[in-house]
Amino acid sequence: MNVGFIGTGSMGSLLIESFLSSGALAPNDITVSNRTYAKAKALAERYPGMRAVNTNADAACGSDYVFLCVKPHEFIYVVEDIKPVLLPHQTVISITSPVLVSHLEGELDCKIAKIIPSITNLVWSGASLCIYGSRMEEQDRKRLESLFAHISEPLRIDEQYTRIVSDLSSCGPAFIAFLLQQFVDAAVEETGIPRSAAQQVAANMLLGTGLLLTESGLTMEDVQQRVAVPGGITAQALKLLQRETDGIFNQVIRTTHNKYQEDLVRVSSLFYGEEVNGQ
């Protein structure tokens, strides 16, 4: 399998490292390009056999899969770079939510997919969100999902839900890590417990809670009910949390959706030459 990665920033390098560490790909399967060639070269030097190339077209030429791991406003320029070398049997994969499948299908005469990864894929966990263009046959979808199954649970979603599912899957780890950090900071401030001890306990608690919710059959409500004895310490604290956090995640979702809409309008204007609303 030949796989090209255009963009070796945070998410591009995360995907590459995850595929390599899981054994899904070998270094000699991968060609990388980056706006700054030195960054692509530095990544390739870490994995002997990987090729760093000077142009996006070189990364796309001959690759079965071409991952576009660049910022939304850069997509149109990358598409223009690779359009002349792509063939119908190749698959271009966007990992960026505001870039619609229709944007890419309108410009490229090949198969198109959009797959949104998560930082949790670095430890072969979490979901990868799969959206497919009209030229992707079922066998194409299964083949791509079998690649991502090495590092995640591939989940097919409707493109209209890209943003909210991305909030839960891709932004969620940052949100939960932030809340956990606040919990640890408060524990240190209020009791003087060593930060390292508090962090270790909290991290293991989060891991165990995740396993309860994914493997034990317990729901989020079940976990709260099993821990919170009526009239007890946890129940009292949960009442405080319910009161103080009421509506906060509605505001979080509105914030992410507003930013998504701004990015979508900007990307659409670059592709179509005018501002277009869409999902």
Rank of each mutant, 00 (worst) to 15 (best):
G7T: 12
T8W: 04
S10D: 05
S10N: 13
M11I: 09
F19A: 08
L20N: 06
S21P: 02
S22H: 13
S22G: 12
L25R: 03
A26V: 12
A26T: 14
A26E: 13
I30N: 02
I30M: 07
T31S: 13
T31D: 05
T31Q: 05
V32T: 12
V32N: 04
S33K: 09
N34Q: 09
A38T: 12
A40W: 06
K41Y: 15
Y47S: 10
R51H: 08
V53W: 09
V53Q: 09
N54T: 07
N56I: 07
N56T: 01
D58F: 04
A59R: 06
A59S: 11
A60C: 08
G62F: 05
S63V: 00
S63P: 00
Y65V: 11
Y65T: 11
V66D: 02
V66F: 02
L68G: 01
K71H: 00
K71D: 00
E74I: 14
E74T: 12
F75R: 01
V78E: 01
V78Q: 01
E80I: 01
E80Q: 10
D81Y: 03
D81C: 04
P84M: 10
V85G: 03
L86P: 00
L86Q: 04
L87V: 13
T91Y: 00
T91P: 02
T91D: 06
V92Y: 00
V92D: 04
S94A: 05
I95A: 09
P98H: 10
P98N: 11
V99E: 00
L100E: 13
S102K: 15
S102R: 15
H103W: 12
H103F: 14
L104R: 05
L104V: 12
G106F: 13
E107M: 13
E107Y: 12
C110R: 08
K111Y: 09
I112K: 02
A113P: 03
A113M: 12
A113S: 12
P117Q: 10
T120V: 09
L122M: 06
